[in-house]
Design a protein around this nucleic acid. Structure first.
Lengths: 144, 144
DNA sequence: GTTGCAACTTAGAACCATTCCAATTGCTTG
DNA sequence: CAAGCAATTGGAATGGTTCTAAGTTGCAAC
């Protein structure tokens, strides 16, 4: 009863239920980890962080839960070249900047009209469900 | 200086020599294969096509040569999610449209100002060496 | 030409992120 | 509490790619 903030309805649980899924301790902890440090961790990194709270969790579960969160549109999966998939709880439309030196990833907020403008280049007959914009280069500011 | 796509084996040899590399039969055949059918083949697909002309080539060589061509800026490597890397001899700035149904990939030509406009969203301190724009969705036209 | 050397190719082993599988464990409803 | 289904788990399997060590090839200097 008094375990977690009862005043706020749990967005995670709601969203999961909406898809006919259950809220489980594993899913909660993983989602919390993503919200807490939004540095686009890999599944392995999420695994390491979650283990602090939940030492018995398995890597397979981390993959399963991350996939579930992506399905429910609570989390975005981000890929750079062939590197491991990274996970991002920022749901607003945004681009990614991948710093080649540090390997870190930064969200780049996009003005609302830009995605439309970009999509406008598509010839007739192309129906895009999503657009992804990725920068690669060097970031002088290295705030994590 | 010209950014146009080299279309002859000579251009390949030149570009390689410029990087202190040799033009080899394997590199030539692989580059030809990419120019001949610009459908963004995977390394495996390139391997299969090249084998028709050169049955003794190895997959490792295909990977090596593709990497070499990418280094020399003769070919672009393209990735979608965690799928296998695809190779593209179109050097003009362009976006990619990935058709989820057929798995095929189409080049989308970009008006010259758009990349600048997109890069303009970067805050100070971000120095982008490249931008990638990827659409995902359904293409009504399904010409290969 | 020979010898030497570095670039190149090759087959197969190794790698790593991810997915699959089969066996539990845990809700939840009757 | 029993049945049934969802979720988790460890380990094996997968697939694309890279590594390694051995063999070729082409060019340069003698």
């Amino acid at each position: 009863m008094s375990t977690a903030t009862p005043s706020t309805p749990d967005a995670l649980a709601q969203r999961l239920a909406h898809s006919g899924l259950r809220s489980t301790p594993q899913r909660e902890v993983i989602y919390d980890v993503l919200l807490k440090k939004r540095d686009h961790p890999t599944a392995d990194e999420v695994f390491a962080r979650v283990r602090a709270d939940m030492p018995t969790i398995s890597l397979a579960t981390v993959y399963n839960c991350l996939e579930t969160l992506v399905q429910c549109d609570l989390v975005r999966a981000v890929n750079f070249e062939r590197g491991p998939t990274r996970y991002c709880p920022n749901l607003r439309p945004h681009a990614h900047f991948h710093d080649e030196q540090s390997g870190s990833t930064h969200d780049i907020e996009l003005p609302p009209d830009l995605l439309q403008r970009v999509s406008a280049v598509l010839p007739a007959g192309y129906d895009a469900k999503s657009v992804e914009i990725t920068f690669r280069g060097k970031a002088l500011k290295s705030r994590e």
